[in-house]
Amino acid sequence: MMPEKPIFVTSNKNKLREAEAILGVKLDRAAPNVPELQSLDFAEVASAKARAARAALGDPNAPVIVDDSGLVVNAWNDFPGALTKWFLRSVGVSGLLKMLSAFPDRSARSVCVVAVSASSGEIHLFRGEVEGEIADAPRGAAGFGYDPVFVPNGHRRTYSEMGDEKHENSHRNRAFNALAVWLTAGRKG
């Protein structure tokens, strides 16, 4: 039986649009409520999420794609990492900036790991990272999460100030481009 169209598990329509643009294919979208492993390790979280999503969808004959992304602050020994969503929900960008104010090192990485659960159940991982630093104050109106304070190396603007330009070489773009190369090589299932 031929594999079905890949299913991207996300509740964020903007992530779906971005993933489809990078991959050059239409994806089915699903948003089952799946438990999310709590760990600083993006690959561990994305792998567990991909397995849980495949099970929640009834083990479809299609690749199931998930992503996990976040901010890694070097001065904090890679925290909040894969816990970024929960961290920002709790303290917000202003809390992040206040806590970081005691540290002279403002370097950070924006990380995305895409996990694909093949119809065989095998998990394939694709990682994208962008080095940068945390700005002193939020800037820009576009984006979400830590976009107003993350400045990629080689730039003066935050992800929020970049608008759609962010997507040209973002952490998510790098991870999904790695997936696109893998899919192009015919490893879809």
Rank of each mutant, 00 (worst) to 15 (best):
K5A: 13
P6Y: 12
S11P: 02
N12H: 02
K13R: 14
K15D: 10
L16W: 10
A19S: 13
A21F: 00
V25F: 09
D28S: 14
D28F: 12
A43L: 09
A43W: 03
A48M: 08
A48S: 15
A55Q: 15
G58H: 05
P60F: 03
A62G: 12
P63T: 14
P63D: 15
P63S: 15
L71D: 03
N74T: 15
G81V: 08
A82G: 11
S90D: 13
S90I: 11
S90C: 14
G92R: 10
G95Q: 09
K98V: 10
M99G: 13
F103C: 06
P104T: 01
S110G: 00
A118M: 15
S119I: 12
S119H: 01
S120D: 08
E122N: 05
I123H: 08
I123D: 05
H124V: 10
H124P: 07
F126R: 06
R127L: 13
E129G: 01
E129A: 09
A135H: 04
P138Y: 01
P138D: 02
G143A: 06
G143M: 01
G143T: 02
G145F: 06
P148N: 04
F150P: 00
H155P: 02
H155E: 14
E165F: 14
E168G: 13
E168W: 12
R172I: 06
R174S: 01
A175E: 03
N177P: 04
L179P: 00
A180W: 09
V181P: 02
T184K: 15
G186E: 07
R187W: 08
K188R: 15
K188N: 14
